[in-house]
Design a protein around this nucleic acid. Sequence first.
DNA 1: GCGAGCCTTGACGTTGACGTAAAGGGCATA
DNA 2: TATGCCCTTTACGTCAACGTCAAGGCTCGC
Lengths: 160, 160
Amino acid sequence: MPTELRRPERTFSIRQLCTEFKATPRALRFYEDKGLLTPARDGMNRVYSYKDRARLILILRGKRVGLSLQEIREILELYGEEDEVMVQNAHSLKKFREKIVDLEQQREDIDGAISELRTACERLEKHLADKRPDLLPKAADYDQMLRARLDGHAEPVAAK
Amino acid sequence: MPTELRRPERTFSIRQLCTEFKATPRALRFYEDKGLLTPARDGMNRVYSYKDRARLILILRGKRVGLSLQEIREILELYGEEDEVMVQNAHSLKKFREKIVDLEQQREDIDGAISELRTACERLEKHLADKRPDLLPKAADYDQMLRARLDGHAEPVAAK
DNA sequence: GCGAGCCTTGACGTTGACGTAAAGGGCATA
DNA sequence: TATGCCCTTTACGTCAACGTCAAGGCTCGC
């Protein structure tokens, strides 16, 4: 086989995906149990396709925004059946619309929480600066941490 | 007593707060157990002050953005002790900063999720328009629903 | 041929955030 | 005085989302 087995038909082992996304095998199997993933098999072993990987990305992001696995599954199912016996999909549509409203609400909540945390931080900082200036951490550290996180995250986690 | 016992010193029963914020008595007692609320007592009964109510609002919002009760408690504690024996608060500061980064990440996730859900909705709508136009819900309904939610929400839930 | 290291399938344990049922007290209205 | 309705505490149950063994199979390298 030639060296070019790059993007298109690549497959992944469970461990590859796990280290790539900082998940655990147990979690991936659990998602499979719940019908969110259905990787192929090579004998006994799971073989994940690029599509599976894409689904996993969606799953993880869904989780981060607070969707239940159940909700995530419903969304994912939409991207497959496309033209199945869908009569009750009017129901799905309604639920999705509601979820959008929820998420917009959540966005506001987050903005609020962020500004509150910022305030709390400022107060703490001032307090510390007054009484225990020795304990003040370097601001630069956080700049660095922030940058580090903003690169990686949902997209492949720095697979070293 | 005069009819004006409005804003300042008002107190609330557990049920009042529950119906106002769509919580359950069990939940409020649970928060108390965990040290997030400490309402006064009238004999055996809990009496919530305006400050307690404010804390409750923060608790509920914290929950909506995915904070654990533990984390929420730490934030709330900051708004009271102000100048206690705080040496390890440098640690809190660090944790809050990290949480801010988390939340900013989460905001991005939500934006992504929203646009994905919108796409999903559009596809579903088109599909339905094609095959089962009879099932299409009226768009106006959602305008209404959206408005209804954007008024109420974290602030008092329409206490009818 | 055998240990290391990957994988598999059960099956039970855990944690957080409550739900739910039991047993009782306090006040009001019929 | 009895019937509700609200409150209380104590205690056990539940649900999601895994974690954590246990027991076993494949395959590589030596």
